[in-house]
């Protein structure tokens, strides 16, 4: 066993339905595992401190900051990154809405914004209230105010918030009304 093997462990991650067997140190974050070891660079490193949301991915459908997570914690979980949202080359409705409503400029926060919005909508559907919700238990309206509040963990320095809110509203509105 060489020194490198002594310091690393094998970690199996299921990312976008594909298994990745990685040989990494236990201190490698999920974000760095994705980017530097699994070759999935769509997920972005903005602050590496859990403050900007650029690294947001979905784990079993729940949004998390992947910079704040160790890869070893996520064995056996379903990890979805921005690369896994489109199906057979068909963009997710939210991806199309981001393009249509110009919900980005430089595009660096965009993978995190989109993954976060997908997770956010699931939270909303589960009835999870936010700080601006009128009720803790009853039906919450899928309003711009709710979207803005729930998306405030994802910073966009270009200031594309107007388009981001419009895109999320449009993409999920049909589902809310259903």
């Amino acid at each position: 066993m060489n020194e490198n093997e002594r310091q690393t462990i094998s970690v199996n991650l299921k990312i976008n339905s594909v298994n990745h067997a990685l040989q990494i140190e236990p201190r490698v974050s999920l974000l760095d595992a994705l980017r530097e070891f699994a070759g999935l660079t769509g997920t972005k490193k903005g602050c590496n401190q859990g403050a900007c949301g650029a690294c947001t991915v979905l784990v079993d459908g729940t949004r998390i900051n992947s910079c704040f997570a160790l890869a070893v914690q996520y064995e056996g979980r379903d990890i979805t990154t921005i690369e896994g949202l489109a199906e057979d080359g068909e963009l997710h409705a939210l991806q199309s809405a981001f393009i249509e409503h110009d919900g980005f400029q430089c595009g660096y926060c965009t993978p995190g914004q989109i993954c976060s919005a997908v997770g956010m909508f699931k939270e909303f559907q589960r009835g999870l209230p936010s700080a601006v919700s009128e009720t803790m238990t009853g039906e919450i309206e899928f309003s711009d105010e709710e979207i803005k509040e729930r998306m405030s963990g994802n910073l966009c320095r270009c200031g594309a918030y107007v388009g981001i809110t419009e895109a999320i509203h449009e993409a999920f509105d049909a589902e809310v009304k259903r």
């Binding site: 393009i99 249509e100 110009d102 980005f104 595009g107 660096y108 989109i114």
Partner: peptide
């Protein structure tokens, strides 16, 4: 709409560190 929209919303756009 932005012609670089698709690479930017799919994670395909390669920034320097990518």
């Amino acid at each position: 709409s932005r012609l670089d929209g698709r690479p930017k919303v799919t994670g395909a756009a390669r920034y320097t560190a990518d």
